[in-house]
Design a protein around this nucleic acid. Structure first.
Lengths: 202, 202, 202, 202
DNA sequence: GATGAATGAGAATTCATTCAT
DNA sequence: CATGAATGAATTCTCATTCAT
């Protein structure tokens, strides 16, 4: 029984994701989701309060993953023995990897579920939280010399979150991602006062 | 006659914008838009093929404004006698100004109209175009020494477009925008090989 | 001025006919008729009380033509010096000719305007009237020996009106119309007690 | 479950038929049909793709009945031991009987649903098919001497189908149907080369 | 008379949600 | 718990008709 409910929720979310990608939020009906999932609408409403809740759960799970990733890398970033620029670079790569596991779904999240996004705790809220944490970390690390830790933290968060999105969403751009990542790395190093590391001036 | 039609379109778009902000795309009906606009639904459908078309036009107009702004500042950026970092900074400020004229509407655009945004030529396409132009400009300016013009152009565009959005959308962040802009300026200068200009290391 | 109004009515009816054939009654709007006719909707309503009236006039004109044809041939049929079977045959050919001038429109009349058809005087009423007239004529002619004049008249009218329709509407039937007309002729002759004329028994 | 669906379809069709007779196709809305049927509009759309489909099913069922009748009598007509004229007469009477079960509905079919009628396989297609079958049967029977089997078959089909319609639709004609049927019988006998059977000349 | 923008009642259709089985 | 038929409020959109210019 326990098993069954877990499966039901799973197939519903899977179907919802596929339909979201294929037709968007508005065009996807709960009956449709249930049909594709191979369960009855009734079952859908057993586990989800309404249509929105289905998609909210879908997004929530994604955010959870992102959050875990960010947290792990911020721990690395906090570790004085490790290179902070590397930590950011690695986080960025992990985020891109995450997006690339299902880019069409990630794009659909951004495109279709903007209206759901603003619920707390959403990504904006997450960003906000991250800015605070990063600022503290910057202040704690002796080797990071940011002029304005608060502004630097903010820019860093914006950079990482938006760059990872852009790198995936604008994939068709005929640019290789490696040089772009290198560029971001340089900027991060610059922000951290590591001018010598990979700057063009060297 | 001419006058009437123009007015009708205008009041419809105005009403659509207000309702978008107040209740979102999904909850806004065409009858409602018409009522708020003070015209009949029939008139709405005289000028717009369907509900989506109304909001598409709203977004189109916004994009047009952004496009004009970007174009003007890229011309300034192309002018060798003017400081390129200043040009970017001014563009950023203008974009923020634009957003701040009606931040709630701008936020609604991002939140609610993601699905419309992807039409060609949308902002993504615009970004793509901008990257190409900026790359050329970087190559042309003798005083700009970017290591990898293509990657630099891409990062610059992502930075400007996403930072301006973030600055407005996350306004509640208890940060003053001036330090954030200064930070962005520093990064831009760095990207352009102007390390001495406003770097913290000076 | 007089001229203009006549023309306006004419172009409207022409457009209505074309649209009726192309899309049917329901799918044809008055605005569309006006556009195709090259006049304004307002003008349409200057000359026709409503949408239905336009099509009623179209049908009325057709009925008028049919009526004139029938009347002329009934006069011929009434002329004792002329062969009554020939008269019927000629009428039939004339009706077919009429239908063939615009078979698609004729078919559309039958298909789409059934609901208008029942207005008096419609074809049914016309049939009724014709039956009475034909019955009298049969009684008057000495050379016509119909067993039951009333029933014969009825059958004759049904035969002529339905056969002419069928011959045109089912044109794709891979039958030549000449043999079919010959067959009808034989039946008419039989009904008139002209068994020797073209019967197979001769 | 099975039971419910069948009932729902049935009451919808019943209501549609009644409304068709009472107000015609155009004036009948799906909401109205549902209300009269005592079900919700949603249920109507669960079983029918759209308004037209409801009426198409209504007509289809009628055609099915007619088709069954015709088929049964053609089998009789094919039986060499039975009188072919009688077979036609009986078919005609059965068709009239069928029409008279609900003449107003039959009339409404003709008047209002002409546009639906033309779908394949419609009555015209059915007529076409019948002509071919009848022609074969005429050729097979030794006792039927038709001069031109193809033309005879065609005329026979037109006669039977149109006469049965006319007899019902023009019922108000102050004629008794018995003499009319006798007249048709005579014509059929004549077409089959049975001149002595019931001809007035005997 | 002509025009065509404006009207708005009304129609078709959808779909989230319920609930009897 | 599962099912899926039934619901009906709500929405989009059409189009015959009017009337100010």
């Amino acid at each position: 029984m326990q098993r069954r409910s877990v499966d039901t929720v799973e197939v519903i979310l899977h179907a919802a994701g596929r339909l979201l990608v294929a037709q968007g939020y508005a065009r996807t009906s709960t009956n449709q989701i249930a049909r594709v999932a191979g369960v009855s609408v009734g079952s859908l409403y057993q586990y989800f309060a309404n249509k929105e809740a289905v998609f909210r759960e879908l997004v929530r799970r994604h955010h959870e993953e992102v959050h875990a990733l960010v947290e792990a890398h911020l721990r690395e970033f906090a570790d004085a023995r490790r290179d902070p620029v590397e930590a950011i670079d690695r986080l960025l790569r992990k985020l891109i990897e995450l997006h690339e596991r299902n880019p069409r779904l990630m794009r659909a999240f951004a495109r279709e579920l903007g209206a759901l996004r603003d619920q707390r705790p959403g990504p904006r809220a997450a960003d906000r939280e991250a800015v605070g944490v990063v600022e503290q970390l910057i202040r704690l690390r002796d080797d990071v010399h940011a002029e304005d830790p608060a502004a630097t933290a903010w820019l860093l968060v914006v950079l990482v979150s938006r760059v990872s999105e852009s790198l995936v969403h604008e994939a068709p751009l005929d640019l290789d991602s490696e040089p772009l990542l290198a560029q971001v790395r340089r900027v991060v190093a610059f922000l951290f006062g590591y001018p010598g590391k990979s700057s063009y001036s060297q």
